[in-house]
């Protein structure tokens, strides 16, 4: 999962107190959060942190910026620095019991630590920088305004295999195999409701909970990936169940799940499962060379 999406899923889980993740933030009373929340600062400049969460328990708001790359925009840093308590209350509509103090935290990849720090220093930014390491999340510079957060990220130990990835399963930056992982079950789900024709754009809207907030470019990227997935299904064993019309960009199911006998349905679902297993693994192996193309062993089935 790409960095920004992983961070959003992770921090929702951290605030929710999901089992298997450290409970520090949850115990401090941080809420589930807000995503890409737009509001204006005291200069009437737009601020849109990737993630915001607040705690009435300790009267604090935390704004998070994910950095996939090695640079932090000076303009963005300046705008965030000009957020005042009143802006959080009046414009971001955060509870007045959670705005006595606030922090902006930059979260990036460990490999980009040095360059991110340079960007922050160049902007005279005092925002804490947290990086993702094998161990978890580690604060590498600056301090929080909120003293209770000071030691939380020193480091916050995380088992990365336990990070939830299902609050938001995909977006326009997801890999094709991640899209395929979601698209085929979505198709099956809609077939259960009697749908037989599938359009890329409609599927894109169904599979990503971020859709309505996405800009036109992001929507186009996701739709394009969905169409690529639908087209690729033909070459990867799905052609006995689906036909892709490249001209109309539609996928048509050739069998209605409700019109076959229970035995035929069961066989069809088993075959679709094997096909999906191989399909996702093949696509994944194209971007993760170590990943086996055969997928996991479904022959454990009774």
């Amino acid at each position: 999962m790409h960095f920004s999406l992983l961070m959003t899923n992770l921090w929702i889980g951290l605030c929710n107190g999901d089992r298997g993740l450290p409970t520090d933030l949850h115990k401090l009373g941080y809420s589930t959060g807000l995503i890409e929340w737009q509001f204006v600062n005291q200069d009437r400049d737009l601020v849109e942190p990737d993630f915001m969460t607040w705690s009435e328990q300790i009267n604090h708001t935390l704004m998070c910026e994910w950095k996939n790359g090695a640079n932090a925009s000076r303009d963005q840093l300046d705008r965030s620095a000009r957020v005042a308590t009143g802006d959080l209350r009046s414009h971001a509509v955060i509870s007045s019991n959670a705005v006595a103090n606030h922090d902006v935290v930059i979260v990036g990849l460990d490999e980009n630590q040095l360059r991110l720090q340079i960007s922050l220093d160049a902007a005279n930014s005092k925002f804490p920088l947290i990086v993702t390491t094998e161990q978890g999340l580690e604060r590498v510079s600056q301090s929080f305004n909120e003293p209770k957060l000071e030691s939380v990220f020193d480091p916050l130990v995380i088992d990365w295999s336990r990070v939830p990835t299902s609050y938001i399963s995909c977006d326009g930056e997801s890999e094709l195999w991640e899209i395929a992982e979601v698209v085929v079950p979505e198709i099956l789900s809609e077939m259960q409701a009697g749908v037989m024709i599938f359009v890329g754009r409609d599927l894109a809207q169904s599979i990503s909970s971020l859709w309505t907030h996405m800009g036109p470019q992001a929507k186009s990227a996701l739709e394009s990936k969905v169409n690529s997935t639908l087209s690729a299904m033909q070459q990867h064993g799905f052609s006995q169940y689906f036909k892709w019309d490249g001209r109309q960009r539609k996928l048509m199911a050739s069998t209605n799940l409700h019109s076959v006998t229970p035995t035929e349905r069961s066989r069809m679902l088993q075959r679709l499962r094997s096909t999906q297993n191989k399909f996702v693994s093949t696509l994944r192996a194209q971007v993760e060379p170590g990943h086996p193309e055969s997928g996991i062993q479904l022959s454990l089935d009774v």
């Binding site: 929340w37 737009q38 907030h213």
Partner: peptide, 19 residues
């Protein structure tokens, strides 16, 4: 049940998974 509300300001995640 897990979902997402969209408002003009942004997105509000709702719910939690059953564990």
């Amino acid at each position: 049940r897990v979902g997402m509300s969209t408002v003009s300001e942004g997105l509000i995640p709702r719910g939690r998974p059953a564990t």
